Amino acid sequence: MSLVMGAMASAAVGTAAQLGVADVLAQGPATAPELAKAVDADADSLGSVLQALTALGVFTRDEQGRYANSPLSEPLRSDHPESVRNLAALLCGLYGHAATGGLTEAVRTGTSVMPTAFGVSLYEYLDQHPDSARIFDRAMEDWARPIGTVLAEHVPFAGVRTVVDVGGGNGTLLKAILTAHPHLRGVCVDRPDTCRRAEAELAASGSADLADRLTFQPADILHEVPAGGDLYILKNVLHDWSSESGVQILRNIRRAVVPEGATPTEDSSKLLVIDPLVEHDSGAAFRNLVKMVVGEAQARERSEADMRREAKEAGFHVLSITPCPADLSITACTPV
């Protein structure tokens, strides 16, 4: 029964994340009516959600009926250094709703869940629902933050001038790298609507230095990737695509790195593929379910052997594969 009721627990966590309950409680304990007023919700309904989450240990409740954050709810705060507020809102919200509405049929037919549940792909859905798109952008920021710190600290950028992040969302990864390395310029490649939102957000941030060094370039990475980078990064992208589409994306990067008819040299741009690989991913089993929900049909978690094979098919040689935080692995590649 605990497993059966898991969807309800997930929905409750997602509701608290989306409403920003932990942000309000960061200012001090509050009753359900006080919280409801602060987050613009119905007091009785919010009270039911809070009682359930308190039973799960997410929040605490004292004898006066005041709720407070617990260590478990702290990362649901927007300002927490390891915040997962928006990631929780996405996984427990849109992704959860899609899985509930279409997973069984997708398993029967071998298709992706999103079209079964909503009639459109994930990105088409986001184009049609701006609020969900904003949560998606912020969730990708939550996912990118830990690896951004790792790359900024441990990847040698001395000989690099321009870093191109393919499928880079709102530029969180590049912002971490460019902040740590002032000599770098960055190009973030993503869908047109994502780039528009990210450009507006960067302009509103007041960071003149980053605004000068970071640009956003719309592109369909299944068809093209802009040239001009000294280092290309592909993070949390391949796992949403089938092997065939993954190889196509890698080939497009290969064409951007080495123009048609040219021969790779020692100075050719390098590629870092940052994705979960089954050998180093403690959550591989459930991550495959997420791929079924929002990824392309036949998208699955890759193994090291899969990664090496796809890189070779696309014209890259794998130099190394390094496990890193957040169950990700960094595959360093050079064109051949």
Rank of each mutant, 00 (worst) to 15 (best):
A299V: 14
D42I: 09
V237T: 10
V278C: 10
K235H: 05
A144K: 13
D212Q: 06
S2F: 02
D127G: 12
E296G: 03
M140R: 06
S205N: 14
A89G: 04
V293T: 11
V187F: 03
H154S: 12
L202S: 04
R254L: 07
A11I: 13
P71K: 14
L151H: 06
H239T: 01
P276N: 05
D23Q: 06
L19Y: 11
G57A: 13
D230N: 09
E153C: 08
L72G: 04
V257P: 03
L46N: 03
S207H: 09
A305D: 10
P264W: 00
G167C: 02
R255N: 08
L174G: 07
T31R: 03
A332L: 04
A117M: 11
R108L: 01
H183T: 15
T322C: 13
F136A: 12
T172P: 02
K37N: 14
R308I: 08
V113C: 07
L238A: 12
V155M: 09
V49G: 00
I330V: 11
V155R: 01
I221E: 03
W241N: 05
V237Y: 12
N170K: 14
G283R: 11
L53T: 07
A11H: 03
L214G: 01
A11Y: 06
W241I: 15
V278E: 12
S329Y: 04
V318T: 09
N288K: 14
A17S: 09
R161I: 12
Y67G: 04
G169F: 05
D131I: 14
R255G: 03
L91T: 10
T265Y: 08
V293F: 04
P156S: 01
L53F: 06
K235Q: 13
G14D: 00
K270W: 08
S48Q: 15
A32T: 04
L50F: 12
D42Y: 10
T331M: 07
N69A: 07
A198K: 00
S303A: 06
L46W: 11
D127I: 02
I135D: 11
G14N: 02
R287T: 12
A52M: 15
S121P: 08
H223V: 10
P130F: 09
G102I: 03
P264R: 11
P81S: 04
T162Y: 03
S2K: 14
A262P: 01
E63Y: 02
L328F: 08
T111R: 05
V189S: 11
S242E: 08
A180I: 01
A326K: 02
H317K: 11
G148W: 02
G186K: 07
P146K: 06
L91I: 11
N69D: 12
R61C: 13
M5I: 15
S245T: 11
G167S: 07
L76N: 05
V290Y: 11
T215N: 00
L328M: 07
E74T: 13
Y95V: 15
A211N: 11
M1T: 14
L103I: 08
K291M: 15
T215R: 13
G102A: 09
I253D: 02
T179P: 00
R145L: 05
A211W: 00
H80Y: 08
V237W: 01
A144I: 07
T104W: 14
Y125K: 15
N69I: 10
S242K: 05
V39D: 06
R197S: 13
T104R: 15
R138Q: 15
C195P: 04
